[in-house]
Design a protein around this nucleic acid. Structure first.
Ligand SMILES: [Mn+2]
Ligand SMILES: [Mn+2]
Ligand SMILES: [Zn+2]
Ligand SMILES: [Zn+2]
Lengths: 150, 150
DNA sequence: ATCCTTACCGCGAATAGTAGCAATAGCGTG
DNA sequence: CACGCTATTGCTACTATTCGCGGTAAGGAT
């Protein structure tokens, strides 16, 4: 969860990983980008900075994967199936409502997910990953359109 | 939800879609395959049947998509990100617990998802799609391994 | 049975993301 | 600071899935 340079660097090394220039540049790009970003967007942001040498896209995918595995970033698959990243520490813990119809995504905090996690733990000894969870369904607008058409 | 030939055929036509031989063969393959299947597996099953002429893979993807949109099949992205299909009417309504660590998936019924749907509807006018929902986290075994290692 | 509309098919190209591998470069150690 | 181990990179090939297009064939209506 550390959001500042020094702590992130330390966390990366403490986990047996290495702080490469590529990862540094990716983290810088993430600091510049607001909210949710995809690997392609982050790659583009890295390329934009003329001080950076060229980087392979696969490096971005692998770096984001590693940062998410460490809990520094959170990831979720948006409606197009594209993986989307965000600082884990950004704002309050929240979840995503993805409309299957229009593709819209909303950030919300759902209290009843606590009960879900408790039930899964009690009945199935399963530890639900609540961070940045994506829930699919229909947004208000698309529900209206669907009932209007029927 | 119809599981038998005649009802499915009728539902397909009623929705303005067409019951092509390709779709018939895909439905036959689905009847043969047990549990969850991926598009590739269904494609392989269609090809296996020597009575069938060759079919393009993209046709399978499109057919499964259409059948899922009609509610005849349900789909969810398994741990590898591979889309997995199942008869919507098969067994009791259930959900999936996907272990992010070992990739294992378990089928369970979670009562507290009702409260989640209610909360999303009340606070965000969002209709959660509870059918075949996939929840990620850590299975019992992987939790044990993780605490043992720490 | 014949016609007409248009949903659907096959094909080939494009996309997001992963995997394998040899070369490179962090970083803990002496 | 030089050394060695191995995590990581760049590249390329590959997988799962989607998309556009011109041709085909369901199936409702004469
Ligand atoms: Mn978010
Ligand atoms: Mn299932
Ligand atoms: Zn919507
Ligand atoms: Zn597991």
């Amino acid at each position: 969860m550390p959001h500042d340079e020094a702590n992130i660097a330390q966390a990366i090394r403490a986990s047996g990983r290495r702080l490469t220039i590529q990862r540094t540049q990716i983290l810088e790009a993430l600091h510049r980008l607001p909210g949710h970003s995809t690997a392609e967007q982050i790659y583009a942001a890295v390329c934009e900075d003329s001080r950076n040498a060229e980087m392979a896209v696969s490096t971005v995918y692998r770096a984001l994967d590693a940062l998410a595995a460490m809990g520094i970033l959170t990831a979720f698959a948006d409606n197009g199936g594209v993986t989307t990243y965000e600082w884990a520490a950004a704002g309050a813990p929240h979840h995503h409502l993805l409309c299957e119809c229009c593709g819209d995504t909303a950030e919300v905090a759902l209290a009843s997910l606590g009960a879900l996690a408790a039930e899964a733990a009690r009945d199935h000894r399963f530890a639900v990953d609540l961070r940045h969870m994506a829930i699919r369904g229909l947004c208000a607008r698309c529900q209206r359109e669907r009932t209007a058409r029927a």
